[in-house]
Simulated scan of single mutants.
Amino acid sequence: MKKSILFIALLFLFISYGCSKEDEREEEVDNKPPSNLSGPKKIFENNVKHKVISKQDAKKDIKLYLDSSAELSEISEYYQDKSYDEKLSENDDKNLKKIKKRLQENDRNFQLYIENNEFPTKYKDNLYKIHKYIYKSNQFDIESFVDDIEEGKISRDKFDKLYKDTKEVNGKEQKKIEDFLKEENIKTKAFKK
């Protein structure tokens, strides 16, 4: 019973979200591209293994990972928004694929970095939390979910995945990450406050 009530509530939420996004798209007359459509020059690439990472190095690495993820996500969102109004050109489509690939590489490289090294106290758990949140938010595609609901083709598996993802990508988890970044004085484009 609880799941069916939750499903109906989430369904209503997503339909409302979809309608509001449609209104936003209609109001957006000028979808300005990010300043650099090719993305950041550097993404996170650290092949260090079995090392003890200093706090200072961990901070720099967190910043690089989050900043490059934020820049790549901004570009990806720009192209996705643009695709609602018009068919993407061959160059735009090619660039979007390149950006998505770099976003995945950034996530994969950071995950391997966390798994293969030792970090100062309280860093390891927070690094996993940051990675999980960013990775899931990069995979999170609410608009596709709303489109499927509107077309009447939503599967139970897709709903269950979205439900699980919302437990990991939410305001509560974001606040924990923001608190850690603030406490450690790590300023990043991903979590502006």
Rank of each mutant, 00 (worst) to 15 (best):
L10V: 03
L103H: 02
M1S: 12
P120F: 01
N31D: 09
K129T: 14
V169F: 04
S155C: 13
S16G: 15
K193G: 11
S137V: 04
I8E: 12
L88Y: 05
D165I: 06
I177T: 02
N95P: 00
L162H: 03
L37D: 01
Y135T: 05
Q174R: 15
Q56E: 15
K192R: 14
N36C: 08
F110A: 02
S35Q: 08
I15Q: 11
K189F: 03
E178M: 14
L103C: 00
E28Q: 10
I75G: 00
E178V: 05
F145W: 04
K176I: 07
Y113R: 01
E90C: 00
K129A: 15
L11V: 05
E143L: 09
K129F: 04
I177G: 01
K136E: 13
K164S: 13
F12Q: 10
N117L: 05
E184R: 03
I43F: 01
I15T: 11
K187G: 11
V169W: 03
S83R: 13
D23F: 15
K136D: 13
S83K: 14
S83W: 05
I186H: 09
Q139L: 13
F119Y: 07
D81N: 14
V169P: 04
D23E: 14
I142F: 06
S155H: 12
F110Y: 06
L72D: 03
Q139I: 05
E115S: 14
N185A: 13
Q139T: 07
L37E: 01
T188S: 12
K32R: 09
F119V: 04
Y135H: 13
S137Q: 10
D67V: 01
E77W: 05
E150W: 10
E115Q: 15
F7M: 12
K63C: 03
F180N: 05
E151I: 10
N185Y: 08
N106F: 01
K32D: 05
S73L: 05
L96P: 04
Q139P: 00
I134T: 11
K172D: 13
E151P: 07
L10G: 09
S16C: 11
D125R: 09
E28D: 07
D93N: 09
K124C: 06
K158M: 11
I43R: 01
N91C: 00
E118S: 15
E26K: 15
K129S: 15
E168Y: 07
S73H: 04
N91G: 04
K129M: 15
N106W: 00
I43Y: 00
P120Q: 09
A9W: 08
S68H: 06
S76C: 03
K63D: 04
L88F: 06
E150H: 12
D23K: 15
S137G: 00
S20P: 00
N170I: 05
F180I: 04
L37S: 03
K97E: 14
S83F: 07
I5A: 13
G18K: 13
E86C: 07
E27S: 10
K175Q: 11
D148K: 15
V146D: 09
D67K: 01
L72T: 01
M1N: 09
E77D: 13
D81H: 09
E105P: 00
D57V: 07
K124I: 07
E115T: 09
L103Q: 10
D157A: 14
K158P: 05
K132W: 05
D93W: 01
Y17L: 13
F140S: 06
S35H: 02
I99C: 03
K124T: 11
L66I: 03
